Simulated scan of single mutants.
Amino acid sequence: MDDLTGFQRDLLYVIAGADRPSGQDIKDEVGQYYDSEINHGRLYPNLDTLVNKDLVEKGQLNRRTNYYAIADGGEEVIEERREWESQFLD
């Protein structure tokens, strides 16, 4: 996860905690955390980066809406991050 931005990491966590959320669902959830508005120009390129790194899978709910799901690689990255964080929190 060391090559991800903090925003990408947050997207990864939101996707991992949801059941096939749409981009709008992810935007709404992340938007509750960030003080600034999350626009499409920021959200979707970062989601595409996660897909291209094989951390997230992308599929279609319908003709207009995509869903995102955590991939095995994404779960591994989250686990590695949690192990690294735990050495500082315990």
Rank of each mutant, 00 (worst) to 15 (best):
L50M: 09
S36N: 10
N39D: 14
V56D: 09
E29F: 05
G74M: 07
G17A: 13
L50S: 06
F7D: 08
E85H: 06
G74T: 06
Y33V: 11
D2V: 04
Q24F: 07
I26F: 04
R64C: 03
Y33R: 13
R20W: 02
G17D: 09
D54R: 10
R64Q: 11
L61C: 02
N39F: 10
G31H: 07
R81D: 10
A16Q: 08
Q24D: 13
I15K: 01
I70D: 05
D25A: 11
V14L: 00
G73N: 05
D10A: 11
D54W: 02
L11V: 03
A18G: 10
Q60S: 15
T65C: 00
Q24V: 10
D25E: 14
G23S: 13
L47H: 01
W84V: 07
D19F: 12
L61Q: 12
Y44R: 08
F88C: 03
E85A: 11
D10S: 13
G31T: 05
I15W: 01
N66L: 02
G74R: 00
A71V: 02
D90M: 09
N52R: 09
G74A: 08
L12I: 09
L89I: 13
D28Y: 13
Y13I: 11
V30G: 04
G6Y: 09
D19R: 12
N39W: 09
R9V: 11
G23P: 09
T49A: 15
L89K: 08
I70E: 11
Y67S: 02
L43Y: 01
T49V: 14
L89T: 13
G23Q: 03
H40D: 14
L55F: 01
H40R: 15
R64T: 13
G23C: 11
N66S: 14
G23N: 05
G17L: 05
G6T: 14
I38A: 04
A69G: 07
F7Y: 14
N46M: 04
G31I: 00
Q8T: 03
T5K: 04
Q32G: 11
W84T: 08
R63E: 15
R9E: 08
N52E: 15
D72E: 15
R63G: 09
G73C: 07
R81F: 15
L4W: 04
R42W: 07
G17S: 15
V14G: 02
E83R: 13
M1W: 04
Y68V: 08
Y67Q: 06
T5H: 00
G59A: 12
N62A: 01
D2M: 04
T49P: 03
E57S: 07
I15G: 06
N39Q: 05
I26Q: 01
E57F: 04
A18I: 02
Q24Y: 06
D19M: 10
N62Y: 01
K27V: 07
Q24W: 06
D2Q: 06
I70W: 01
V51G: 04
T5G: 01
E85M: 13
H40A: 15
N46V: 03
E57D: 15
S36I: 13
E79A: 15
S86G: 00
N62K: 05
E29D: 06
R9P: 02
L89A: 11
E29Q: 12
A71T: 03
D48N: 14
V30E: 06
L50G: 04
V77K: 13
D54C: 01
N46I: 03
V51K: 12
T5F: 00
Y67M: 03
L43V: 06
Y13F: 12
E83D: 14
D54A: 09
T5R: 05
